[in-house]
Design a protein around this nucleic acid. Structure first.
Lengths: 252, 252
DNA sequence: TTAATCACGAACATAAACGAACAAATAATA
DNA sequence: TATTATTTGTTCGTTTATGTTCGTGATTAA
């Protein structure tokens, strides 16, 4: 149990669970805290981890900052939703991932899955997941929408329709009280519809700010989904709708 | 039980379990620690293992350096090259940007240009530039290459050929002494050729490590470019070639 | 805010690992 | 066989990794 071994193991552990405390590492490797501190400091210098009081977490090397600032809204909630969602995705499966900051959190959470086949029209998702070596990513071509990195349009729909995937992961902009799924852009809606049509299981991701929000374009109804991942207990109306349509609800 | 046998056996063992301690090897081969040290040091020099206190583990030297590592090499030089290059790009112009870490630096440097039209087959470039609100980005579709986020293949060439742009920005993998532009992947080369064909002006970006590097596939000749941006004075051969073919040279 | 607690880094001690130099053993060659 | 070259073992002074102690600075609860 020497230094090098410990170092690589520490990086692994951090990648696995985002943060490790010194105490955990002390117990894990059976060395003194001082040694762990030395390890962490060395790793923080060369590697991509960041040192904190009491431990260390993943470094900020991969982030693009300006975008992430905007993304900061509800980031923690999104990460939690994403973490729970990806537990449903087995290795070796195929999935669509559409536009939205929540789906980008999903992409990050999928970095340690193996042998996924991912079709997406979100360049940020593609960019994030391209670091997963075992993952094959197919991205739709066309004009990139500036505000969220989405690729939409007629050709995207044709592109999506070529595939039939195990899972469709859709981040939704708004959910009405009657269970309508809503969005702001009709072209994006058409893409999402196409994804729903070509997925064996539909997984919706929506943090609580999306409920009751008045987006304009109707994408479909919540009963078309199989699973809904969110961070707060939805209203009774919605809960009843979910139950009636046999949509599984996961609150993180 | 001679040296050569031991050497190959050691490499095997390391490949098997990522790390071996000197103690293990001593016990395994029944020789003194000093002998093992000599073995490991010799292997570390020529072969693909890295020496550490107490043992050795798999080395990263033979592996294709990973994307994130490659991105880190020469980052400052690349940024300088990029800064100088983008001074040539006026607002409201149209450009191709191809694969490569240098071109990603260019994308970052273009964040404050206005009203660009960019066609690229590099999702990282697309992801970076999507933060420039005034910029319209068109990305080629297809399978994303994991190691560098590039999209290559027949459909990419067709896609590129649709456009005729003001500038083609090409990060090149190697430049031979005779002025040959070289790359490692023939599919990427075909994309780059297509970009050259469809650009009014060709801008090459290559830091000094690229000169004299032996990539395999010939992309074209340096005389097909109009501008070359680099960070060190190139050899006399190259300089003469540039002068003879009226290629502007910019050293940052 | 203040006090208690904990984490931190610096300094030192110790044991293990290290390389250099040389001796012994083995293999190769004349 | 004798001689040389290569490999391995041995010794020893030096470097490195880890543990220990302690004064300082950060965090948290009162």
């Amino acid at each position: 149990m020497n230094q090098t071994y410990r170092h690589s193991k520490i990086v692994e552990l951090i990648e696995e669970r985002d943060f490790v405390s010194i105490d955990e590492l002390v117990a894990h490797f059976n060395v003194t805290p001082q040694t762990i501190r030395r390890d962490l400091n060395a790793l923080a210098k060369t590697n991509c981890i960041t040192r904190h009081h009491g431990g260390a977490c993943l470094g900020s090397s991969t982030k693009n900052i300006t975008y992430s600032e905007r993304k900061a809204t509800n980031e923690e909630a999104k990460n939690n939703i994403a973490k729970q969602l990806v537990q449903f995705i087995p290795n070796d499966s195929s999935l669509f991932i559409n536009i939205g900051t929540t789906t980008e959190a999903v992409a990050r959470a999928l970095l340690h899955h193996k042998n996924l086949k991912v079709v997406t029209n979100n360049i940020h998702v593609a960019s994030i997941l391209s670091e997963n070596e075992s993952c094959s990513i197919i991205v739709a071509g066309g004009e990139v929408r500036n505000n969220d990195g989405g690729i939409i349009g007629e050709s995207t729909i044709d592109f999506i329709s070529q595939f039939q995937m195990d899972f469709g992961i859709i981040g939704i902009s708004g959910i009405d009280e009657d269970g309508s799924l809503l969005d702001y852009d009709y072209r994006e809606v058409r893409v999402a519809k196409s994804i729903i049509r070509n997925s064996r299981q539909v997984l919706l991701a929506a943090d609580h700010t999306k409920f009751g929000r008045n987006a304009m374009i109707r994408l479909g109804n919540i009963n078309e989904a199989h699973h809904l991942f969110t961070d707060f207990e939805p209203s009774e109306n919605i809960r009843n709708l979910l139950k009636a349509n046999n949509v599984q609800l996961y609150i993180s």
